[in-house]
Simulated scan of single mutants.
Amino acid sequence: MNQHLNPNESALILVDIQNDFCHEEGACSKMGRDVSGAQAIIPQVELLMENARELNIPIVFIQMTQNEYTISDAWTNRPRPAGYKNPLDICKKDSWGAEFYKIAPKEGDIIVEKHRYSAFIGTDLDMILRNLNCKSIILTGVATNVCVESTARDGFMLDYHVAVVKDASAGYVPALHEATFGNIENNFGLALETNEIINFWSTLKSAAV
């Protein structure tokens, strides 16, 4: 855990915790997806944010947005639920659906907009993390097996230590949600519970007193 959770070299990343992915009136819910799991992770995410701020760990809000210039044939025609019609139906830029769900950045937090599953594709995330001297990324958010896992994989390929927080990540298909943690632990990094991370940080704080 020393490599993956070192407060001086880590960033807490919140992936796509937005109305269209989490709210019962959001796009995913209207397509028939069960968003209760996405709503249930908020207390754990808030607890991680609180502890991260105490340790001056950077917090990065990843925000999916779409506009007419970011969509392509491949993106439009990717596998989607039956209710999906237009890529701009999900997280259209400046829409209510693209707003964060029950969490909000504070002064000093970082917002990175993305247009694909991975938060590293077509964004400044890698540059930002390197300028912050971050070597490790701690990932939360939705959906576990899509945007969270895509970001975790790309982060590992870019030589970051990767930790995915199991009870602060949510998916819409339980089997795929759980499979992500096996993938991470077998190939890319750590899959941890919120209390494991906070207990580790608490030990460091106690040692520093």
Rank of each mutant, 00 (worst) to 15 (best):
33 R>I: 14
111 I>F: 14
101 Y>P: 03
31 M>L: 05
114 K>E: 05
28 C>P: 00
184 I>C: 05
61 F>M: 12
13 I>T: 08
189 G>K: 01
198 I>L: 10
188 F>L: 15
37 G>H: 10
132 L>I: 08
134 C>A: 07
52 A>R: 01
165 V>C: 04
38 A>H: 02
61 F>R: 00
62 I>F: 06
86 N>V: 03
133 N>M: 07
7 P>W: 02
100 F>R: 04
204 L>W: 07
44 Q>L: 00
22 C>I: 11
7 P>V: 07
48 L>S: 05
149 E>P: 15
170 A>G: 14
192 L>A: 09
27 A>P: 05
20 D>P: 11
84 Y>V: 08
24 E>T: 14
174 P>F: 07
7 P>Y: 03
142 V>Y: 03
25 E>G: 07
1 M>Y: 05
6 N>L: 07
90 I>T: 09
183 N>Q: 12
45 V>Q: 10
193 E>T: 06
124 D>Y: 13
128 I>M: 12
156 F>R: 04
63 Q>I: 03
87 P>F: 12
147 C>S: 12
10 S>F: 01
196 E>S: 13
120 F>T: 01
146 V>Q: 06
171 G>D: 06
198 I>S: 05
29 S>I: 00
113 E>W: 12
61 F>C: 08
42 I>G: 04
65 T>K: 11
47 L>W: 00
114 K>N: 02
85 K>Y: 15
143 A>H: 01
1 M>H: 10
68 E>A: 15
101 Y>A: 03
111 I>E: 05
101 Y>V: 02
22 C>H: 02
68 E>Y: 14
207 A>P: 04
191 A>H: 07
138 I>S: 03
89 D>W: 02
18 Q>A: 08
121 I>K: 00
168 A>W: 11
181 F>I: 05
192 L>H: 07
107 E>V: 12
202 S>Y: 04
34 D>A: 12
204 L>E: 11
26 G>Y: 00
94 D>C: 08
77 N>Y: 15
10 S>L: 02
188 F>P: 09
186 N>K: 10
180 T>W: 05
83 G>M: 09
111 I>V: 15
203 T>V: 09
154 D>I: 11
187 N>L: 10
112 V>G: 06
141 G>R: 03
115 H>W: 08
164 V>G: 02
187 N>T: 11
14 L>D: 08
97 G>E: 04
15 V>C: 14
198 I>Y: 05
59 I>L: 13
